[in-house]
Amino acid sequence: MKALLVIIAFCGIAWMDLPDMIKNKQWRNLAIYSAIFLSVLTFGVLVASDIKVPSPIKAIQVIYRDILGLSFKAS
């Protein structure tokens, strides 16, 4: 259900962005755009369908705190 909403929203985004590029025949931009569009769409669908996507912030925290040892002690 939520994933469906995400897809609908992305259709809206595409509807707003694509016509200009197609009209102006910017095929390179279109290709880049589609690549980003699809990856964000995948990301969004994953988030929306409650599949646990690990937060990059978590990874950074592990790198900084546990590997580099850089962290303040939380009060």
Binding site: A9, G12, I13, W15, M16, P19, D20
Partner: peptide, 18 residues
């Protein structure tokens, strides 16, 4: 030029629907 050609109504539509 794009606004004149209707990009704004498009965003209004999408925003309104949202």
């Amino acid at each position: 030029s794009t606004i004149r050609k209707g990009a704004l109504p498009r965003s209004i539509t999408v925003f309104g629907i949202c």
